[in-house]
Write a protein that binds this DNA or RNA. Structure first.
Lengths: 224, 224
DNA sequence: TATAAATAATAGCATTACTATCATTTTTAC
DNA sequence: GTAAAAATGATAGTAATGCTATTATTTATA
């Protein structure tokens, strides 16, 4: 059985849908590779074009600029994570287990998912960790929000908030706590890697569940 | 009694110490004003120079580039917050009260502190909220870390972690929790303002202690 | 009052972030 | 199988950005 999952993306993110053509898929695939390798700052459409053997103008036919390309892959990532959480929690009824699963999915090492041929989720996880916040740390936040570019993130946040409320219907801060889970699951892993003294973990330790354990304990004691 | 506080800054942040000359102080003061008004993306040394009536090259004599200028003011902010926390907790012995005070200082509205004439802390708070993360979301993170540019943030993190450990000596995740406090105290306020559906608060509500209340409850149930 | 230090004025250059045009190839429709 | 349409490639150009360099002028200091 070979299943390929396809995520329906917000059409305002692109000028031409990259998932419908070979060149488009190459753009996504190699944008992820290049941003992962050199960071968003060093990344531009000229380099991307050279890397995949096309022209700068060719990329501009798909995306208005690199911020929207970043938003595309970051939005894709959040939708994919929500899908994974829903998938793994299928047929599980205990709210406690569901919430724990979600926390672990969000804060543990991701491996490349072969059901998405031109997207390397392992690289994408790193990109979201170190560049993801830049999608909303911009003066365009209002405009982007109107265009629903943050919908995948908000949907996931609401999904987690619902899991929290299922477990603890009287807890008053389900959304703030969901946002805390989302944010800290990525940023503690970023710090663990780059500024480990801001955490209680070190990057050398093999155990990749440490961040999840911290968050899990914090969350469950908060909503108990 | 008029007291002016002065924070000793890391000398590698600048080429010439801006706090020692009139032009230098103007650079800091107006950089804060302009970054607050238009965001870091739109901000550059040419605009800053025009705004204060000097030349681009003049600014470059003080700072190598705008990232280091941002680091300067963000580092200043974290040192100032640590100072405020220490100041307000002077002669208070109960660890519980100290930690609560720290949480409130970090997550509630800041007003301009007149003991720092050319720095508007109110504007600076907004800048740290919406641009602060960009200081470490860069490929230069390793190099900046070596140069100790993140020391003020780390010191504050450790300060909070110590307050946590004083209250609850057996708690295993003092640093991660301190980082969570620091990060969420700013980012929840950012979301409250810009993407309120990610929080349980709305920007219209007058009460500015809501974020603090959420964090306080979460923290104290975690370390109980 | 000489000297050094700081600032102003101006120029210039490589890179970035696009836009435009036109030729060529590939796809699709009949 | 061919014509039309769509997508891509090749090339050029422009305004803004992020610097560096040079020289002149002002200001502080000895």
């Amino acid at each position: 059985m070979e299943i390929y999952i396809q995520i329906k993306m917000n059409e305002s993110l692109f000028l031409r849908n990259p998932e419908e053509t070979d060149l488009g898929k190459k753009i996504i695939q190699n944008a992820i590779i290049l941003i992962h390798a050199h960071g968003l700052e060093c990344f531009n459409f000229k380099k991307l074009a050279q890397h995949i053997g096309t022209t700068e103008a060719g990329i501009y036919r798909y995306f208005e600029n690199k911020q929207l390309l970043l938003l595309f892959i970051v939005d894709w990532y959040w939708s994919w994570q929500e899908y994974r959480i829903a998938f793994h929690n299928k047929n599980i009824s205990k709210p406690e287990l569901k919430l724990k699963k979600a926390i672990h999915i969000l804060s543990e090492t991701v491996v490349d998912d072969i059901s998405t041929p031109y997207i390397n989720e392992k690289l994408l996880y790193d990109i979201v960790m170190s560049e993801g916040a830049k999608t909303f740390l911009t003066k365009h936040i209002g405009e982007y929000n109107k265009a629903k570019f943050f919908k995948p993130y908000k949907d996931l946040c609401l999904h987690i908030a619902d899991l929290i409320s299922d477990y603890s219907p009287n807890y008053k801060y389900a959304r703030s706590l969901a946002t805390t889970i989302l944010e800290m699951s990525h940023s503690l892993n970023f710090y663990k890697k780059n500024l480990p003294s801001l955490t209680d973990f070190s990057d050398t330790k093999k155990d990749d569940t440490l961040v999840a354990q911290f968050i899990e304990k914090m969350v469950f004691s908060a909503i108990q």
